[in-house]
Design a protein around this nucleic acid. Structure first.
Ligand code: ATP
Length: 638
DNA sequence: TTCTAGGCGGTTTTT
DNA sequence: CCGCCTAGAA
């Protein structure tokens, strides 16, 4: 055990071995916050003799949850035996499954994901005779979601609805909720909202508080009001709650998260012990100074100048690409080289759409890679279609899935209904993979696809993947829950991939030897949407985002931007991100100067499978790149 | 009832 | 460029 504590510095040890009561750890990136949480979990169990089933570890994203479970396991713990280790949403879903009746949620309820919610909303608007072109479903969903996250009830919203728009929202909200109810469904936000309602019932909260006595929450700066409430209620009277967070890494305010919850924690628990972790164990000093150079421009929250236990390390690379393919080409090449030498490589971008150019290049060169996020596996049309059949099997009255099925063909739907009628309840409890296979055959699902078509072949592959995944679940119900909440790790280009592609959001909490932060252009990073309102807060969030991105790097960091980029199918030239100018110049090293030549030489190669028209466009790019050469002088000043 | 062309609008980020 | 939706043909 003493050996175990040797892996910690003084402050970390203090936090890990802290006894009962509330504990707040505020510390910068890479200072070992997550390490403290996992060590503390292990410490509680192994040293303090607390039953693992009494401990709940809460995170925000599936990725972070996975990372956490892994780390607990590496310390010799059984992540599986913990009371809970996963996301807020999963926690709430489980709670509702067991106790839901108390807040009018049936035990066999289904979870509607955002696609389903949108389908419901569209239906509501249609039935109310609102033109979807005038008022978009997404807009109403966003407004309602925001209120739910803030724990505003419909009733409350109604009494406060002073103008026409707000009254309309309330009306739509009610209709939307009715539909969910009719379908025995709960949407993402309601999972948390209903769980709060549930935990407010004394009898139930006390029962849960008995079961889960130790609550540990990662990334507290990203909790929203509803989630804050969950943690508060879970902490109960004992208040054995540990929270870690860093205001400089708050990047989820778009979904109602508020880093001021860190302050609220102190208000809620005035006696909370506070620990700060001063040393960074992840990155080189140059990387930290680069990140600090940027984040120090934020004024609405404290920013820490981190110090590493490592040396200063290499300079930070700065690459200027002609266009997004240049960017991909250079970065993939550099990534490939270092992946061979020293391991994990991440290419981080602001928006999912940016993965395209990198995937094309990696694919072309047949380099294994891993893509995180993007279109969720379970959101793909062919997968949703099949899942819809299972949902109808699970609950024949569920209209959203029914509509989906009918869109696949009236005849198919009828065949399916007949098949379903003959099924006994027992048969419906069969293995979901088996059931799916049967459905596919009965309705002739694959007839729509032509395996010679490339896209269709990929769809068939997805379907096979689904069958494999589904077979692992005992019941349809269990499978459906996981389908709604989890991010299935589907097959990648090749499995031994050392290069990972993902958004900065998805990379939070992770670390890599070599990190590329790409697309650093005004309008992309910071994103134009955050510049629109002119709100300082929004730009500051973008700045925190790039701060998170940079601090993922252990040894090497490269920042890049492209002078010209394909947006919406059209070419646009850009100027470098303001964040680049915030990096102290002495830390940057310009790289890839030979790129222009390289590009010319490799051009014919790059276009092997393209057709005439595309070639023309490329020639045009080239011309544009030539034309913007004058910008060089200006850009060189960066 | 089913299939397809083309008009239209839209992009942040996640559960 | 891409996916969604609708109108109109098969
Ligand atoms: N005392 C220590 N000795 C050795 N390595 C450490 C120590 N503390 C932390 N580390 C290592 O430093 C890295 C960063 O730690 P960790 O991920 O826990 O930081 P964090 O504060 O959660 O970071 P972030 O907020 O950026 O997610 C990890 O690789 C971790 O193993």
């Amino acid at each position: 055990m003493d050996d175990f504590l040797k892996g910690l510095n003084e402050e970390q040890r203090e936090a890990v071995t802290y006894g009962k009561g509330p504990l707040l750890i505020l510390a910068g990136a890479g200072s070992g916050k997550t390490r403290v949480l996992t060590y503390r979990t292990t410490y509680l169990i192994k040293k303090m003799g607390i039953g693992p089933e009494k401990v709940a570890l809460l995170t925000f994203t599936n990725k972070a949850a996975e990372e956490m479970r892994q780390r607990v396991k590496n310390l010799g713990g059984e992540a599986g035996s913990l009371g809970f280790a996963g996301t807020f949403h999963t926690f709430c879903a489980k709670l509702l499954r067991e106790y839901g009746q108390n807040v009018a949620v049936m035990p066999n309820y289904v979870i509607f994901d955002s696609d389903d919610s949108e389908a419901v909303m569209k239906k509501v608007l249609k039935e109310m005779g609102i033109d979807p072109k005038e008022s978009k479903p997404g807009m109403f969903l966003a407004v309602i979601s925001r209120m739910k996250n803030d724990l505003v009830s419909v009733t409350e919203a109604e009494t406060k609805a002073s103008d026409y728009f707000r009254r309309l929202v309330v009306k739509i909200w009610k209709a939307y909720q009715d539909k969910l109810k009719k379908n025995n469904a709960v949407d993402f936000d309601d999972l948390v909202v209903k769980a709060v309602e549930l935990l407010k019932i004394n009898r139930i909260r006390e029962e849960i508080n008995e079961k889960l006595e130790w609550i540990l929450v990662d990334e507290y700066q990203d909790t929203n009001r509803a989630q804050f409430e969950i943690t508060r209620l879970l902490a109960g009277k004992k208040q054995n709650i540990t929270a870690v967070g860093d205001a400089a890494q708050a990047i989820y305010s778009f979904r109602g998260a508020d880093y001021r919850n860190l302050v609220l924690f102190k208000t809620e628990y005035p006696k909370a012990a506070m620990v700060n972790l001063p040393m960074n164990y992840r990155s080189t000093q140059n990387i930290l100074d680069t990140a600090y150079g940027v984040i120090s421009h934020n004024t609405t929250h404290p920013t820490l100048h981190l110090e590493t236990v490592e040396g200063s390390g290499e300079m930070v690379n700065f690459f200027e690409a002609g266009d997004e393919r240049d960017e991909a080409k250079y970065i993939v090449e550099q990534g490939r080289k270092t992946a061979e030498e020293d391991g994990a490589v991440a290419i981080l971008y602001r928006t999912n759409a940016q993965s395209r150019a990198f995937e094309d290049e990696l694919m072309r060169r047949d380099i294994p890679y891993k893509l995180v996020g993007g279109l969720r596996f379970y959101n793909r049309a062919e997968i949703k279609d099949l899942v819809a059949y299972l949902r109808v099997l699970n609950n024949p009255k569920e209209e959203i899935s029914r509509i989906r099925i009918e869109k696949l063909g009236k005849r198919r739907a009828e065949v399916f209904d007949k098949w379903l009628e003959q099924k006994t309840d027992d048969e419906k409890q069969e293995n979901p993979g088996r059931l799916l296979e049967e459905i596919i055959n009965v309705v002739g699902f694959l007839e729509r696809f032509d395996e010679r078509d490339e896209d269709d072949a990929a769809r068939i592959e997805n379907i096979n993947e689904l069958l494999a995944v589904a077979s692992d679940y005992k019941s349809v119900e269990k499978f459906l829950e996981s389908a709604a909440l989890s991010e299935s790790e589907i097959k990648q280009h090749k499995s031994n991939a050392k290069i990972t592609l993902m958004t900065v959001h998805a990379a939070k909490g992770l670390e890599f030897e070599n990190v590329f932060v790409v697309g650093l252009e005004e309008g992309l990073f910071p994103h134009s949407r955050s510049m629109l309102s002119g709100e300082k807060e929004e730009i500051e969030e973008e700045r925190r985002l790039i701060y998170v991105a940079m601090t993922r790097a252990k040894r090497r960091l490269t920042l890049s931007w492209a002078r010209n980029r394909l947006v919406f199918g059209g070419r646009h030239s850009s100027i470098p991100s303001r964040f680049l100018s915030e990096v102290p110049e002495r830390l940057l090293k310009k790289v890839g100067g030979v790129q222009e030549v390289e590009r010319k030489m490799s051009k014919p190669l790059a276009e092997i499978d393209e057709f005439g028209e595309k070639k023309r466009i490329i020639v045009q790019d080239w011309e544009i790149a030539e034309a913007t050469k004058d910008d060089f002088a200006e850009i060189d000043n960066w």
